[in-house]
């Protein structure tokens, strides 16, 4: 049933598999899609970065990110306060969207990346691996930490003329989390991960 060929996901060109070495990129010759971008020690680095991310996401969520002072009264804001303020105004649809894309899905994605890379690292087969990998691929674009980061900058500029703003520790944790997240996206080699998952499930089934 299987074949030695592969197909481009965006133009369906039938191709011979490329065997790029780490640092090289394989593009589809017909449409230019990035087929493979192998990294050195992709599994180990993904594991390390996902653990770092899971640690950083705690202070990024709990510590105040920005504190504001208007006419003598001050207020602290973190990732959750936007959600709760929107809920208070009965804007529950946006509140849910913000909650999902800035808090829940980043946690879920880091958790999934951790679970998958851990199983691949210790070479322990699991029937959940394919599901986890599929969820990670589908949910990836809905976690929008970097867009939230840009939102903080714009909000900051808008408010800076009206009020006195201070950075909180949570903001530093958030920036560190952004960097770790971006590195994780680069280091996670989906092609290799699927290959290893297939090998593991073959081993499991004898």
């Amino acid at each position: 049933m299987s074949s030695n060929f592969e197909a481009c996901p965006e133009c369906d060109a039938l191709l011979n598999p490329a065997l790029p070495i780490p640092g090289e990129k394989a593009h589809c010759p017909r449409c230019g899609y990035l087929l493979q971008r192998p990294r050195q020690q992709s599994i180990e680095r993904t594991l390390a970065l996902s653990i770092t991310g899971l640690i950083l996401i705690i202070p990024a969520n709990l510590l105040p990110m920005i504190s504001i002072k208007i006419f003598g009264s001050s207020l602290d804001g973190n990732l959750w306060s936007g959600v709760s303020a929107l809920l208070k105004e009965d804007m529950w649809a946006i509140a849910m969207l913000v909650l999902l894309s800035s808090v829940l899905l980043p946690i879920v994605n880091l958790g999934l990346a951790f679970l998958i890379s851990l199983h691949l690292f210790i070479k322990k087969p699991s029937s959940h691996l394919t599901h986890w990998m599929r969820w990670l691929q589908h949910l990836n674009e809905w976690a929008m930490l970097e867009v939230y980061g840009l939102g903080i900058i714009v909000a900051w500029v808008k408010l800076s003329s009206l009020a006195d703003l201070r950075f909180g520790l949570g903001l530093y944790a958030f920036i560190a989390l952004l960097i770790v997240n971006a590195m994780l996206t680069i280091e996670l080699d989906g092609y290799l991960f699927w290959q290893r998952i297939r090998q593991l499930s073959k081993k499991q089934n004898g």
Binding site: I66, I70, G82, M91, I94, V98, E141, G151, K158, A163
Partner: peptide, 29 residues
């Protein structure tokens, strides 16, 4: 580029949370 349009929504959620001083200064979505 699709996801970057969420910028405005995130900005509003931050403004709504930070500027909440009753009648003196308040931002409502």
């Amino acid at each position: 580029v699709g996801r970057w349009s969420m910028l405005d929504i995130f900005m509003i959620s931050i403004l709504v949370a930070l500027v909440d001083m009753g009648g003196i200064a308040q931002i409502i979505a």
